[in-house]
Each structure stands twice: as structure tokens, then as C-alpha cells.
């Protein structure tokens, strides 16, 4: 940067060799060098499969093979077939519900830790919040299966207490079970960004609001909440993006009514051997997630612009 600026005004034609030398010494070069292992890895692991999927999605499915005939029929099916549309809408509904539930539950926890836990205890609290990560995701999902099952913890407790006569059936192998399990799994992801945003709020702003005549509740509404919005938006993105494509939870606790888009994709790929349709579904799901995320990123931009000093 600096080198280019300093040489402004010299003849534009420049020896390619010196330009290369300057580049090698520049900050940009060392930056590229630093990120290159990660960048290479990401390229191999992400971009190549992505390209393969994009390619598959416009090819024609043959019996046991894929034919090299370009077509948009897969997309027509993915968007047109009511079955897929229903699964896609369900996925959106589930992850939106999970996001809403998680963020609504995470906010009070983050608020409590940020405002009511003494500073010396905060790291202990954050540590405790991350404890669920100590067991594998799969095991946690299985645990929910045990808790919510026909003879599970919830049902047997309620029956022992005499509150219900028969086991509840609406809590496992349906959308509810998927929402409950995912909301639990993603709670820490939502708590942390909100906590960070709350921590950054200058406490004298809250005092100033009270000093200017606002009660605690209105101070929260007019100062704390708007200033913590970047954290809320981050939490929404962090929960929404992975949950919409979650495979394990709907597979294990969702039952037939709880299937989500990734289960449908898996079905196309591994059971029906229909790579092109599976790819078209995957690309469509990605496009939808991207669209929703962009809306939130735009919102975050607005909040962030205000926060920058």
C-alpha cells in the first residue's frame, strides 16, 4: 500500500521484475502467504465438492449412471414437486422456530451473565455454558431420544406422577422433537455472541438513560436492546444456517413427519442413487439459506455502522 502510494507520479510502465519484488515484500504478499494453507484447504474441501454438486445438478439422471446431457429438469422437480416443497418449507419452519426459541432463551442467560454475574465469575459461567460441547453431538441427540421417548424420562415421570395416563406421543418422532433437540444443541452458540455484544455496552449509557428519566425497563428497550442487536443478529445467523441443513437430529428424533431437506438429499444420493436431483435440492437449499443470511447480514451492517466509533 505505502510503497504504491509513494511511487505515485512515476511513469506507469514499470519493470515487471521490480513489481514482483515489491509485491513479494508487501504486506499483501505476507498476508496471502499466511492464509494460503487455510485457503488451499478450504478450496479443496469446499470449492471442489461445491463445483461437483453444481455440475451434477444440471446433468441428467440415467439408470445407475449420470448422463452428460445438460438439463434444468432437476431444478424443475426440486422446486415443482409438492413433496420437496413441503420438506423445504418444513426445514425453513424448523430452523426459524429453533432460531427464535434459541435466541429468545439465550438472551436472558447472556444478559444475566453480563449484568448480574460478578466479573470474577464470568469466565466460570461461560465455561459452564460450554459444558454440553464436551459430549458428542450424536450422543446428545440420543439422550434426547431417551428423554422424549415412549418409555422415556418425560413420559414415565409424568405417568408416575399421575398427570397423564398414556405416554405422550407428540414429543418424539415429529417436528417438536427436532425443535427441542436442536434448540438445546445450539443454545451456547446463541448465548456467546449476545454475551459479547452486551459486554461491549458502556454501563454509563444505562446510567445516563436512567438519569434522563427512564425506568430500568425502558432503559433496556431504548438502550440495551438496540446496542445488543449486532449480537442478536450474529446469534440468529449462527443458529439458522447450520440448523436448516441439519441431518442427524431429524434422522434420529424426527420420524417420517420430521424429515428435513438434508434427509431428502441423503435419500436421493444414497438410496435412490439420483445424484442430479439430490444436487439440485442441495443447491436450492443453499440458495435459500444464502438469501435469508444476506437479509440478516444487511441488518447487521446497519447496526454495526452505528456502533463504530
Amino acid at each position: 500500500m505505502g510503497a504504491t502510494g509513494a511511487n505515485r507520479g512515476q511513469p506507469a510502465i514499470m519493470d515487471a521484475k521490480t513489481r514482483w519484488g515489491r509485491f513479494r515484500r508487501s504486506e499483501a504478499a505476507s498476508g496471502l502467504l499466511l492464509i494460503s494453507p487455510t485457503a488451499l484447504y478450504a478450496l479443496l474441501m469446499l470449492a471442489v465438492p461445491l463445483a461437483a454438486i453444481l455440475l451434477y445438478s444440471v446433468l441428467t439422471d440415467g439408470y445407475l449412471t449420470v448422463e452428460w446431457t445438460p438439463t434444468l429438469a432437476n431444478y424443475a422437480e426440486a422446486w415443482g414437486d409438492p413433496l420437496y416443497r413441503q420438506v423445504m418449507l418444513r426445514s425453513l419452519f424448523v430452523s426459524a422456530t429453533v432460531t427464535l426459541v434459541t435466541v429468545l432463551l439465550a438472551y436472558p442467560v447472556a444478559y444475566y451473565v453480563s449484568f448480574h454475574v460478578s466479573p470474577s465469575r464470568k469466565s466460570l459461567w461461560l465455561f459452564l455454558i460450554t459444558i454440553p460441547f464436551w459430549t458428542s453431538y450424536l450422543i446428545r441427540v440420543f439422550l434426547w431420544k431417551v428423554i422424549l421417548g415412549f418409555n422415556g424420562v418425560v413420559n414415565s415421570s409424568l405417568m408416575t406422577l399421575g398427570i397423564i395416563d398414556e405416554p405422550l406421543t407428540f414429543i418424539l418422532y415429529n417436528v417438536n422433537a427436532v425443535v427441542i433437540t436442536l434448540a438445546h444443541a445450539y443454545a451456547p452458540f446463541a448465548i456467546l455472541p449476545i454475551f459479547v455484544a452486551l459486554e461491549k455496552i458502556d454501563r454509563s449509557l444505562l446510567e445516563a438513560s436512567q438519569d434522563l428519566g427512564e425506568s430500568r425497563l425502558l432503559t433496556f428497550w431504548r438502550v440495551t436492546l438496540p446496542l445488543s442487536m449486532p449480537g442478536v443478529v450474529a446469534a440468529v445467523l449462527i443458529v439458522f444456517i447450520p440448523t436448516i441443513g441439519d441431518y442427524v437430529t431429524p434422522q434420529l428424533v424426527g420420524g417420517p413427519e420430521g424429515r428435513m431437506i438434508s434427509n431428502a438429499i441423503q435419500l436421493q444420493y444414497l438410496r435412490l442413487d439420483n445424484y442430479p436431483l439430490g444436487s439440485a435440492l442441495a443447491v436450492s437449499a443453499m440458495a435459500i439459506v444464502t438469501a435469508v443470511s444476506l437479509v440478516f447480514l444487511f441488518l447487521n451492517r446497519r447496526f454495526l455502522r452505528v456502533r463504530q466509533q
Binding site: 458502556d202 438513560s209 438519569d211 425506568s215 452505528v306 466509533q309
Partner: peptide, 18 residues
């Protein structure tokens, strides 16, 4: 504080950034 007939100018000014 919100019910007192006083107002304060804080040392850090506490201007609402949003």
C-alpha cells in the same frame, strides 16, 4: 435516579452511539 430533580453530565459523556 430517574425520579430525582437532578441530571448528570458523565465523565465519559455517555452519548448514545445508536
Amino acid at each position: 435516579p430517574n425520579k430525582r430533580p437532578t441530571n448528570m453530565v458523565f465523565q465519559s459523556y455517555a452519548i448514545f452511539p445508536h
